[in-house]
């Protein structure tokens, strides 16, 4: 039995649930935090969404059927929570995607927990110029090191579309960053 399968078994057992949840936090908290942070940009927002994600995981672990891996299932919850958070905030504040991209950079560079140098700022600016789908795919592939199959399960897009989206994004970054 894999480590994740064992963890799921313990999480579904009422007597072991709390201890198992501690283990789950140790294993996934940091990874999910960075996954969320790239989507919602600021540390403060990422903290809120991370908490909501783990609460949702805790409440719904009994419904986890093991069709995908625990890791993919949790990433999917984190992804959905982040998108929900963005939709709620963007609807209130921005009218279109250009405004969202500008605001994204403004918020990112203004965040007290961002201290990137010029090249990092340049990379963030290029990524912010991508479509929402391109951004998510590139970030999950490059920074979270997920396989195309895993990303496909999380965002519900075919693997071939994901590959084409990712390699287009890489090409754009390579061209722009080394200009």
């Amino acid at each position: 039995m894999s480590k994740d399968a064992e963890l799921v078994k313990k999480l579904k057992d009422a007597t072991l649930k709390d201890r198992a949840f501690n283990e789950l936090l140790d294993a996934y908290q940091e990874r999910l935090y960075w996954h969320i942070r790239k989507i919602v940009v600021t540390h403060e927002n990422a903290d809120d969404v991370l908490q909501n994600t783990f609460i949702r995981v805790y409440k719904n672990i009994q419904k986890f059927e093991g069709k995908s891996s625990l890791h993919t299932w949790m990433y999917r919850i984190a992804y959905n929570e982040s998108i929900r958070f963005l939709e709620q905030n963007n609807k209130k504040n921005y009218a279109n995607i250009e405004e969202v991209s500008e605001a994204h950079l403004e918020v990112l560079f203004g965040d007290e927990y961002f201290d990137g140098d010029e090249i990092q700022k340049k990379l963030q600016t290029i990524i912010a110029g991508f479509s929402e789908k391109q951004q998510r795919v590139f970030q999950m592939k490059y920074f979270d090191d997920l396989s195309f199959r895993q990303i496909s399960e999380i965002v519900e897009i075919s693997e071939s579309t994901l590959k084409s989206t990712y390699y287009t994004a890489v090409k754009i970054i390579e061209e722009k960053i080394f200009l």
Partner: peptide, 29 residues
């Protein structure tokens, strides 16, 4: 993974964040 993000994206987190965040999540639950 944190170093990777710091290195390429310049993003930081408060010191000892994951320990405090873990306690906060457990309290909320």
């Amino acid at each position: 993974i944190s170093k990777h993000h710091k290195k390429y994206l310049g993003t930081e987190i408060p010191e000892n964040y994951f320990a405090t965040s873990k306690l906060s999540i457990l309290d909320k639950i």
